[in-house]
């Protein structure tokens, strides 16, 4: 069972059809999420990580659409047997099936808890709404579940927190309440979209250790999206590195950090300042900036900034595909093919 993925994303393509042209925000992304594991998706802004998870939740709105690919999820309520996987792409938008899934088996922790909570409803109200949507319980029982969840995520005085509004809570408490809300229905898959970017390091450490604890207790799978490589290193089991809508490299966290194969992963790791660097030293940088999404490109998306691009324009004329280089790790780069050829 553990070897079977809970979620399989295959060749996902999400495009936005704008007047100025078509933006391929997600361009052929594939990854697996195993149950009880944390998958980290890293990338800079505009690399398509948020669009990817919005596609998984089927929350892409016009002018965007999922153009291609499959998102197979092992659902307990929709599937007939535990072996069957449901392709979320084929479920009709706004269908009852999707609604039954969202917030129940797949839950989201959004980036900004301030914007995600309604300011005119109490925390308790909003938690109980989720419970009523997915479980046939009385008000009292729903309240009991909500209080237990808040207690679980470490909200002090959960009973009184139920009657408070989101703006009365501090940033850390608000994010805890958000995590509590995402966990109300014991989801199989928890998607966390940069849950710690808006908060301070000490609060971030609290939230991260909370997520790790909950994940170990409930065996929930987590997709964790961030641009902070430190957070990924601390939390993830597997990592997907994205750049301009494509997967550059994927593999176990230890391989990605200690044996990165793609030039982009290597450059990204080199360029982050850490608390261990000597002070006033120059950082190695990635030259240039992220190309504009409208820009038409053939070949590897990273070629313009790549220091290891192959001669004879191969990287700019031809697009590499994601290939498995060993049991766990996959890389989308010609460099690796070359090495194989040489061997």
């Amino acid at each position: 069972m553990t070897n079977q993925p809970l979620l399989e994303v295959r060749d996902l393509q999400t495009v936005f059809e704008l007047d100025e042209g078509i933006v391929k925000a997600v361009d052929g992304v594939s990854f697996d999420v195993y149950s009880g594991k944390v998958l980290g998706i890293v990338g800079e802004s505009g690399c398509g990580k948020s669009v990817t998870i919005k596609s998984v939740l089927r929350l892409i709105e016009k002018p965007g659409r999922i153009a291609n690919g499959a998102i197979r999820f092992r659902s307990k309520i929709l599937g007939n047997s535990s072996a069957e996987m449901i392709d979320l792409v084929h479920l009709p938008a706004k269908s009852a099936q999707l609604r039954a899934l969202r917030g129940n088996e797949i839950a989201l922790i959004p980036q900004e808890p301030m914007a995600a909570f309604s300011p005119v409803h109490t925390i308790g109200n909003q938690l109980m709404e989720v419970i009523h949507l997915h479980q046939q319980v009385s008000d009292d029982e729903a309240k009991k579940i909500a209080v237990t969840r808040l207690k679980e995520v470490g909200v002090p005085n959960p009973e009184s927190a139920m009657d408070r509004y989101s703006w009365e809570l501090s940033g850390g408490l608000r994010q805890r309440a958000m995590i509590g809300m995402a966990l109300t229905c014991n989801p199989l898959l928890l998607i966390a979209d940069e849950p710690t970017t808006a908060i301070d390091v000490t609060t971030q450490a609290q939230v991260l250790s909370l997520l790790r604890k909950l994940q170990q207790e409930h065996q929930t799978s987590i997709i964790f999206i961030t641009h902070d490589l430190g957070v990924i290193a601390q939390l993830a089991d597997d990592v997907v590195v994205m750049y301009l809508g494509k997967v550059m490299e994927s593999g176990p966290v230890d391989q990605i950090f200690h044996n990165p194969q793609h030039p982009y992963t290597r450059a990204l790791l080199r360029s982050i300042p850490t608390v261990h660097t000597k002070n006033r030293s120059r950082l190695p940088t990635i030259s240039g900036s992220i190309p504009h999404p409208f820009q038409k490109r053939t070949g590897c998306p990273f070629v313009a900034r790549c220091q290891e691009a192959l001669p004879q324009q191969r990287c700019s004329n031809q697009a590499p595909v994601l290939k498995a280089i060993n049991e766990h790790q996959s890389v989308s780069c010609f460099l690796h093919e070359e090495e194989v050829n040489v061997c």
Binding site: Q204, A233, Q234, D254, T274
Partner: peptide, 11 residues
Amino acid sequence: LLSAVPVADPR
């Protein structure tokens, strides 16, 4: 504060 900074090394 220093111990709260996530270290970019899974080991």
